[in-house]
């Protein structure tokens, strides 16, 4: 599919300068681009199983090394979005469910709808304009302050400072998703019979919620969050581009512009593996939490 896009990687490799047709042909042969697509594919597949994702045309480096360099940054971007914002979303969901149909509930639900609908790149740019340019609280781009290199603890704080805006832009969707999911699932669970049982035992409402309602309500939330990990990776491409975050998404974006086939395919392959793995982990977590679907 990547090959269907117009453009030729050689254009990028050779740059703007004049180049003869003979030289082009030689380069094409060198890179193996003269062979039929099917042959290229078979060769590529054979290499993958040897742990070789090929060389990037643009960077002249093994694709795997490039990805390895960028993975920590993407991971760093996604972790707070996942942990912090999903956690916050669950809390807000509980609050909304407890005051079902009240003003607060409507407000939170409306906010969640907004958070879910707003495009990530637009939100990112909005954040840059508001919090970075106008207010000057946060940097607009990058992961580190290049003008004043720091060490140790100061460096960590510097990274976190740079992280705040992109993580918010990426996490907003998940905040919205987990708020809405937790709310609706909590509302359903609160109506179930065993909530009455727990109350009849004389347990305080706080305990009824935390021990009986929440674990049951979170089951569908786990599934939905797991299923949306793919969306989050997509979102991280956009966020990384907007904030010039040196992660895998940025690498993919650059790769697409350069028609860097091995790099594009390599990243997509890795991302697919991650998504499948996350879904597997979700299912395993589900089986641990819910005794009803444990294998006997």
């Amino acid at each position: 599919m990547v090959h269907l896009a117009p453009g030729d990687p050689l254009n990028f490799i050779t740059g703007e300068g004049d180049i003869s047709n003979e030289q082009l042909a030689r380069l094409r042969q060198e890179y193996g681009l003269d062979r039929p697509l099917s042959t290229q594919y078979i060769l590529y597949m054979a290499k993958i199983f040897q742990g070789d994702l090929g060389y990037s045309y643009r960077y002249r480096e093994p694709v795997l090394d490039l990805i390895q360099d960028r993975v920590p940054a993407t991971f760093l971007l996604m972790m707070p979005a996942l942990v912090l914002f999903v956690g916050l979303g669950i809390l807000l969901g509980i609050v909304a469910a407890r005051r079902q149909n009240s003003g607060g509930d409507l407000f939170l639900s409306g906010l969640a709808l907004l958070g879910w609908s707003v495009p990530v790149f637009w939100l990112g740019q909005l954040l840059i304009i508001a919090c970075a340019l106008k207010l000057g609280w946060f940097p607009t781009q990058g992961m580190l302050n290049l003008r004043a290199p720091t060490q140790g603890m100061a460096r960590v704080l510097d990274v976190l400072w740079h992280l705040a805006l992109p993580a918010t832009a990426l996490g907003m969707r998940f905040l919205a998703l987990s708020t809405r999911m937790t709310r609706s699932s909590m509302v359903q669970v609160l109506r179930l019979d065993y909530m009455t049982t727990a109350r009849a035992k004389g347990l305080p409402e706080r305990v009824v919620l935390s021990r009986h309602a929440l674990p049951n309500a979170l089951l569908p939330v786990i599934t939905i969050i797991g299923m949306n990990m793919g969306t989050m990776l997509t979102g991280s491409v956009l966020v990384e581009v907007v904030f010039a975050w040196p992660g895998m998404g940025r690498l993919l974006y650059d790769g697409v512009l350069a028609r860097d086939y091995p790099l594009i395919i390599g990243i997509i392959l890795i991302v697919s593996i991650v998504v499948v793995a996350v879904n597997l982990i979700t299912d395993i977590v589900y089986a641990i939490v819910d005794p009803r679907i444990r294998y006997t």
Partner: peptide, 24 residues
Amino acid sequence: LRALCGASVGYVFQDPMTHLNPLL
């Protein structure tokens, strides 16, 4: 009232499957 209910009153409901928490 909740505490009194727990300490001095016992409730048993119709359908024991739906009235027990499936995760505990």
